[in-house]
């Protein structure tokens, strides 16, 4: 793709992501009401001026819940990606740099874990550990680090044979110094792209866990959990289903745009080929 389109995607994605971050931070200001306050008299009402997204089966304001849900989803997305990114990058670095038996063991582990469909493993982990935010984060982080490890390992193996590494080593630099100061910066670009796309992916999976009832539990305003709650009222009150899902999609779309754009910008391929 074009670097220009890449730039546009980055700007567009960044705007969405920053807006969402703004919503998350200023949720108490934006939300018209308390996301937990029930009002059984005013339950399942359709979107109107007072309740822009309507109310749910317990009469809670869906707009407020969606706004507060931003906090939960972004927290999970960022924290899980940070943890799995750190584990993955560290594993990839040492596997790629030191090679040998260590590399063999680590990469076999990655192979084995990648043999499980990620969400299935996360589901089982979350189910066994029990529901709740910390366990959801743990489960998703444990199944999400392998991709980073593979990519970083590949990049390290390509970088470590370059002359400048030998040069730095000849100057007496230690392994860790070389790894952190010289190799890490060179493999960072793909990691940044992966992590950006990863946040979107994690948010999607976290919502799926909550939707299945194995993630963040009600009454916490989480989008997936809200969808699960709204399912039973699909016939009578579809707005319970529409708005939380829309929130998930917009959020994930923002991160996907940003990640795609970053990939295009960080890895520009020449587009017009002129024969010579």
């Amino acid at each position: 793709m074009h670097t220009e389109t890449g730039n546009k995607a980055v700007v567009g994605g960044l705007i969405v992501v920053l807006l969402l971050a703004g919503v998350a931070v200023s949720a108490p200001l934006l939300a018209p009401g308390d996301p937990g306050r029930q009002n059984l008299v005013l339950n399942l009402i359709k979107p109107c001026w007072e309740y822009p997204f309507g109310t749910d089966e317990l009469g809670r304001c869906i707009f407020s819940r969606v706004v507060y849900g931003t906090r939960v989803s972004l927290t999970i997305g960022v924290v899980v990606t940070a943890i799995s990114g750190l584990i993955g990058v560290f594993t990839g670095l040492i596997a790629g740099y030191f090679g040998g038996l260590l590399d063999e063991i680590l990469m076999r582990t990655v192979d084995v874990l990648l043999a499980f469909p990620g969400l299935v493993l996360a589901l089982v982990l979350a189910g066994l550990l029990g529901p709740g935010l910390p366990n959801v984060i743990l489960a998703l982080a444990l199944v999400g680090w392998m991709g980073y490890a593979r990519v970083v390992r590949g990049a390290v193996m390509a970088v470590k044979v370059k002359e400048f590494v030998a040069g730095v080593r000849a100057l007496g630099a230690g392994d860790w110094y070389i790894l952190v100061r010289h190799i890490l910066p060179n493999v960072l670009a793909p990691v940044i792209v992966m992590a950006t796309l990863g946040i979107g992916h994690v948010i999607l999976n976290a919502a799926a866990l909550s939707f299945l009832g194995l993630g963040v539990q009600p009454p916490t305003p989480e989008w997936g959990a809200m969808l699960n709650g709204g399912r039973s009222y699909l016939r009578t009150a579809p707005h319970l289903t529409v708005f939380p899902g829309l929130a998930i999609m917009v959020t994930v779309l923002g991160f996907n745009f940003l990640g795609d754009g970053l990939r295009d910008v960080l890895d520009p391929r020449s587009q017009a080929k002129i024969p010579d």
Binding site: A207, F211, G224, L227, P244, G245, M249, L253, D260
Partner: peptide, 16 residues
């Protein structure tokens, strides 16, 4: 891009 960003459980509910 919409397709990869859309949660499939949501899409399922909408189709339903």
């Amino acid at each position: 891009l919409l397709g990869v960003s859309m949660p499939n459980f949501w899409l399922g509910l909408l189709l339903m």
